[in-house]
């Protein structure tokens, strides 16, 4: 059992989402940073899509009621375990009664940290997923963000968890997390709606994530993309990564909780391999875009799949210190 002592601005249960429920109009949802999700789960011996906690920006304090193996990935939110710095991207033992604290961002990038616990968060699956659907009000714990006093059940650790202790995810095997990331775009189907110089400006302007942004999408400030003439589009299917432009000209980057359909022209789509970088942006953060090709997107996707399947090393130093200090 994990007890939430403090939840910060947005703490939710997330897993790989419900892509199959798209046909019912249900947003795919799931972890924003899917790389950090899979890495955290692998570190503690879970299946890649097991349910984890997604902490946003910090302000989180958790209490473990029993000893367990945990791994924290994604953003550096200054994690401590019982007051001592917690080794990130590493399978670490949390003793019964231990307190995990995620105060807030410690680097110039980073929005979301992922905590995997051996056995996974064992809330009941709904439509094939334990993810919290905030707009639908289902999944996770009662379909809502977590708050102080909530208690989360844990699943039974796999056999792999008994061997996972001390496993470490090497820094060179992670996405290139950084301030002002350059996200690669495949040109969208509706470029003809916009003047060519505006499209060129999209790839030459530093944009900022707007204050009204959330898990559904980011409003991007810093560039207006007006339609060449007033038009309307019948609603069409959209996916996370799509940049759609409403009539006010302010682009919106769709993220994990985006609706399954949209009625605005699509100017570009962020490639899958760069979505984890987008997931680590908070309102006020800067980003840039660059257009790329399908071939480059496929190569990047392949490389990321290989990185996620890489054999893991045991960090002996951490292992020894954990043994000594546990």
């Amino acid at each position: 059992m994990i007890e939430i002592i403090a939840a910060g601005p947005l703490l939710t249960v997330q897993d790989a989402g419900r892509p199959d429920a798209r046909r019912y109009g249900v947003p795919p949802g799931g972890a924003m940073d899917t790389f950090a999700l899979v890495a955290a789960n692998r570190l503690v011996g879970n299946l890649p899509g097991a349910a984890v906690l997604e902490a946003t920006a910090g302000g989180v304090v958790l209490h473990f009621s029993r000893a367990t193996l945990v791994a924290l990935t994604g953003a550096n939110l200054g994690a401590t375990l019982d007051g001592r710095p917690l080794a990130a991207w590493t399978a670490v033992r949390a003793a019964a009664g231990a307190r995990l604290h995620l105060p807030g961002r410690r680097e110039r990038w980073g929005a979301r940290a992922y905590l995997a616990v051996a056995g996974g968060i064992a809330v009941p699956p709904i439509l094939g997923s334990r993810s919290t659907s905030l707009s639908g009000g289902f999944g996770g714990l009662d379909g809502r963000c977590l708050r102080a006093g909530d208690r989360l059940p844990l699943g039974t650790p796999t056999y792999a968890a008994t061997l996972a202790f001390g496993q470490h995810w090497p820094a060179q095997g992670r996405p290139p997390y950084q301030p002002c990331p350059i996200l690669r775009l495949i040109p969208g189907p509706h470029l003809a709606w916009f003047a060519p110089e505006r499209i060129a400006a999209l790839a030459a302007t530093t944009l900022r994530v707007g204050t009204t942004s959330n898990r559904m999408g980011y409003r991007l400030d810093g560039l207006a993309l007006p339609y060449r003439r007033p038009c309307s589009l019948p609603s069409l299917g959209v996916i996370p990564g799509v940049i759609q432009v409403p009539p006010d000209g302010a682009p919106i980057l769709l993220m994990a909780d985006a609706q399954t359909t949209g009625g605005y022209p699509v100017v570009g789509v962020v490639i899958g391999a760069d979505l984890p970088l987008a997931a680590q942006l908070l309102p006020g953060d800067e980003l840039r875009f660059t257009f790329t090709t399908l071939d480059e997107a496929l190569a990047a996707r392949h490389a990321q799949a290989e990185a996620l399947a890489q054999p893991l090393d045991r960090d002996e130093g951490d292992l020894l210190s954990s043994l000594a200090g546990a």
Binding site: P189, I239, G241, L298
Partner: peptide, 14 residues
């Protein structure tokens, strides 16, 4: 039908 990529993992027919 115009068929156009929507990123590298989807195709949109309009």
């Amino acid at each position: 039908w115009n068929i156009h990529p929507l990123g590298e993992a989807a195709l949109l027919a309009e």
